[in-house]
Amino acid sequence: MDVPLKVKLAFLLRPESYPDRPTRVKAIETHLAWVFLTDRFAYKLKKPARYPYLDFSTVAARRFYCREELRLNRRLAPDVYLAVIPLTLKGLSELVLDGPGESIDFLVWMRRLPQDRMLDRLLAQRRLEERQLKALAWVLKDFYGAGAQQDWDGEGYRSRYREAILTNLRELRSLGFKNGTALCEAQLEFLERRADWFDARAAAGRIVEGHGDLRPEHVCFEPPWPKVIDCLEFSRELRLLDSADEAAYLALECQYLGYAEAGRRFLELYAQVARDVPPPRLLDFYLAYRATLRARLLLSRIRESAASVWPRLRRRAARYLELASGYTRRMQAD
């Protein structure tokens, strides 16, 4: 039976809907999901969304990707991701969480993490310690080492960047960001001029299945080891990347928040513990590419967002493009 999303949301907003009987429920809407926070747990309901890069439009698809989210996130946060639970319809109208009846949707059930230990919060409060960054570097080094190395040749690796940069170029042009053209063209030129660097990364087995969305708000320094949540579950292709690229992405996001020194130090510590020191200009390419991509993704949301949020999206995108410009200039310094 097809139950409207607003009915599901209304049910999940009521504390009595949950088996642990919380005192209150807080709902957070993201681009692709609703997250319901109770006193101790979080319950994530995927939106019935469909885009060129994902399809959550059916109950079966949402069940599959909930299971993927559980499986993939247990790699870096095994005690946080608890289960996938059904939202069921009992009789003709009674909704039940993880109860008898027809399964009309599925949720990822998680333990809530202490917000005061999240990386973005520690940065904002100036409480981040170097030992924490080093512990994260070790966790990621072991994570990448445990994953299967991807058997890609250099051309295959470079072709994926080429396609993504061309997509960035088209989108930024269509949305009126003319400065994106020069950035993308410089990245394409670097990709060809330094093809040997990309080929060497692929040959050395540095292409791995990573997290895919390594941002400060996804890192928690809860003892005894750092945990990383909310990986990119809907596309294995986008999780396949150079481990140094993913480390650089976290550094970029730290800089975007205003903490460039923390990002720089994390990259240094990761290079030390992983014994992986790519050419500095290659890291600049990764940083420039990631910043340009983030700008494009923000701007693409304008088409589906209320006009009231357009200025904020454009300001955020402009900030990423500013960062991309700085890294592009460094990338071209050789």
Rank of each mutant, 00 (worst) to 15 (best):
C66T: 05
E185M: 13
F190V: 11
A317H: 01
A27Y: 09
E217D: 08
R193W: 08
E261H: 14
D79S: 13
G180H: 01
L321K: 02
P15T: 13
R24K: 15
E16V: 09
L54K: 00
G205D: 12
L12G: 00
Y53L: 11
D199C: 10
Q272H: 15
D276M: 13
R173C: 09
G156E: 08
C231E: 00
S308M: 05
A135L: 10
S325M: 11
E129S: 13
A200G: 03
F190H: 10
L250F: 04
P15Y: 12
A274F: 06
L72S: 03
S325I: 11
R117H: 12
L113E: 06
A42P: 02
R40P: 10
S174K: 15
E68M: 12
R160E: 11
D245C: 10
K26H: 14
A324W: 00
Q187Y: 04
T23F: 13
V273Y: 10
R236Y: 07
F266T: 07
Y81S: 03
L122R: 13
V219I: 12
L313C: 11
P48C: 07
L183N: 06
F41D: 05
A244Y: 03
S174F: 07
R312Q: 13
E246K: 01
L252G: 02
A203Q: 10
R329F: 04
D153S: 09
A164M: 14
T328E: 05
L140M: 12
R329I: 06
G263T: 04
G99S: 08
L283A: 07
E189F: 15
L113C: 09
R63M: 10
G176W: 08
F198C: 06
R71Q: 08
P78L: 09
D116G: 05
